[in-house]
Design a protein around this nucleic acid. Sequence first.
DNA 1: TATTGTTATACTCTATAACTATA
DNA 2: TATAGTTATAGAGTATAACAATA
Lengths: 167, 167
Amino acid sequence: MEPNTPHVDELELAAGLGRIKTMMRLLDTPRDLSMTSLSTLASLERLGPRRITELAVLEGVTQPAMTQLISRLEREELAERLPDPADRRVVVAAITEHGRAELARRRAAQAKRLAELLAELSEADRAAIAAALPALDRLTAHALGALPPSPPSPPTPPAPPAFPASL
Amino acid sequence: MEPNTPHVDELELAAGLGRIKTMMRLLDTPRDLSMTSLSTLASLERLGPRRITELAVLEGVTQPAMTQLISRLEREELAERLPDPADRRVVVAAITEHGRAELARRRAAQAKRLAELLAELSEADRAAIAAALPALDRLTAHALGALPPSPPSPPTPPAPPAFPASL
DNA sequence: TATTGTTATACTCTATAACTATA
DNA sequence: TATAGTTATAGAGTATAACAATA
């Protein structure tokens, strides 16, 4: 079965995913929130409430940077700080309804442009992308420490089972 | 053929590609060059020498920002400024050998980590990703204004046929 | 007069170091 | 004494506005 083994060329994959990163950066508008802010917001939506330290590690920034980032998100009411009753040193950050709405709004705008780009591809190309989406999601889940089998983002879960606290 | 039509859900695609963007941002190390700098360098490698104004549009930043960005790349000898004999107002930026090497080095590091992530996926998932790569490349090519049918990036073409200048 | 690029200035985002509060 | 988070300070990166050189 050698001839048909579609082994992934990691170097080409790296270059291709890098171009996707650039494309998504250009598709993201307006530029009023930094990329890390948006990514953090998406993490809070995907993972539920998380501690400052944990978010800093997840996003690859320092703890002070995350403190200020959360402050900015809080100022715009996209996220909020909650105390941890179990350990009063800890601050837990959570996405707000407004934050969820903002993410949805931006993804809708991106989706609209992606639809235009997809329209320029062949049906076979669209099918290949659609077929690869779940695999790509699992790939990123491994990298981002997500919980892939759970529903991507229920509209408004009354409350993520309290605070999982430890990842 | 309706039952088997794998139509792309653009919203899910936007969310999934957004996670890819975050993943690639985290895979990119060290953080000594900004994302826009690296993206510009990759554009110069992919498209050949380009004018400041054109690069600014491509990367979605202002002209002054691109002026400074190229100055930083020049200071580290990753790119260089060349005059345009035809119009002396114009400055053309080009990637250097050192710049190409730096991009290659970073992609190799990313590829290594991607290989580890890919190893955690099923063979079917890897096959789906491999099968979708060309389609994803065409998708980004449409978005980034590239020239998709040409070879991705020949190791060291003696010289891109002079200055294509006008895109 | 229009276009290309640079310089001047201000603001955002991030890092390192020092600090406060709690464990 | 160690840990979680914040505050202080400095630097990179970007935008807008004003400028210089060439067309």
